[in-house]
Design a protein around this nucleic acid. Structure first.
Lengths: 186, 186
DNA sequence: ACCTGAACACCGTTCAAGT
DNA sequence: ACCTGAACACCGTTCAAGT
């Protein structure tokens, strides 16, 4: 007798992402995910091969979300320096809204749980385009790396609570955007 | 009857750091640490209050190591732009030698496992000093943040395998150092 | 074809009992 | 005063049995 699925991979990934955001990595347990979608933990294995694969799906989903936000942050034709600021702020907003997802996507990860190259490429396409406009096509890659490194490093430190020596964090971010843009435009 | 301790907190922290580097966070189990230092897992609780506290001790030890390397990278009197490059390269070397420890110290961490402010301040003192020389005392904090964000972000991406679009990663690093230095001196 | 309870091998942690 | 085995409450995962 065939039995219709009582849940779906989409519902499972969404539940996992919610749990990750609410309770941290330890809160993303197979039992908790099962409870959220209305099945027992062993049933999840009909939809996903294990916890590691589920975490990876959450990361890929987050990377797609981030990539779309970066694309949308600066329409074609926006002056490059302005576009750079907009992209940096979009990254920061994403990190503030979905800090756990940001950590998943941008944290230095061990080999086995890296994003596949195509997902990584797509989520950074907008930044490479902006960098090319600013620094010239021959320095596009280095410039994109410099910008992404700075922005993700800044936000990572912010999330880590590393900016507790006082001072205005927003101002430090804008200071950095300005300086990075000028440096890349060289 | 008193019984002499068969292990020590130092040996335990060292064993934990080794395991973290060799087998990743999951490999740092109380049982594995116990096996390395020659006692059973429950005995570790005579020396450390739990696994979380042990991970924190490893992180503090790594932060101290990193701080010392940064201090040593550029003796007083080194021209600031040169000192900045030396500090950035020292950070990168540390990350290459102790990638797991680097992730522990520089990764965006949840509130409960952050370094205490004093440890954080000491490990970044050298960078703040260099930034002040380069950007002037009134912009020291923002400049230090920009530099640290860029360098740690760059290395984090490097460790995460995010630089797989080809190109020379060493050259990208030097490109970034140069541009950041100019931008901060700006 | 999916879901379940039971089971297995792991964790971290507690604690009474040993020396 | 430290160390131990046993126990407890959790994991992730497998699998035979149910529908």
């Amino acid at each position: 007798m065939p039995a219709p699925a009582r849940t779906s991979i989409d519902a499972i990934v969404r539940a996992a992402a919610d749990l990750l955001e609410a309770d941290g990595p330890a809160g993303l347990s197979m039992q908790a995910v099962g409870a959220r979608v209305g099945v027992r933990a062993p049933s999840l294995y009909k939809h996903v091969s294990g916890r590691g694969a589920l975490v990876r799906l959450v990361a890929e989903d987050a990377a797609r979300d981030l990539g779309e936000r970066l694309d949308a942050s600066a329409p074609f034709g926006t002056p490059p320096k302005e576009a750079l600021g907009a992209a940096a702020r979009a990254l920061r907003s994403f990190a503030h809204e979905r800090p756990a997802a940001f950590r998943l996507v941008l944290s230095p990860a061990a080999e086995e749980d890296r994003l596949d190259p195509e997902t990584a490429r797509r989520s950074s396409a907008a930044v490479v385009r902006i960098a090319a406009e600013l620094a010239g096509p021959e320095h596009a890659l280095e410039a994109a790396r410099t910008l992404t490194a700075w922005a993700s490093g800044f936000v990572a430190m912010e999330l880590a609570g590393a900016f507790r020596m006082g001072g205005d964090v927003d101002a430090a971010f804008e200071f950095g955007v300005e300086r990075i843009a000028d440096a890349l435009a060289g």
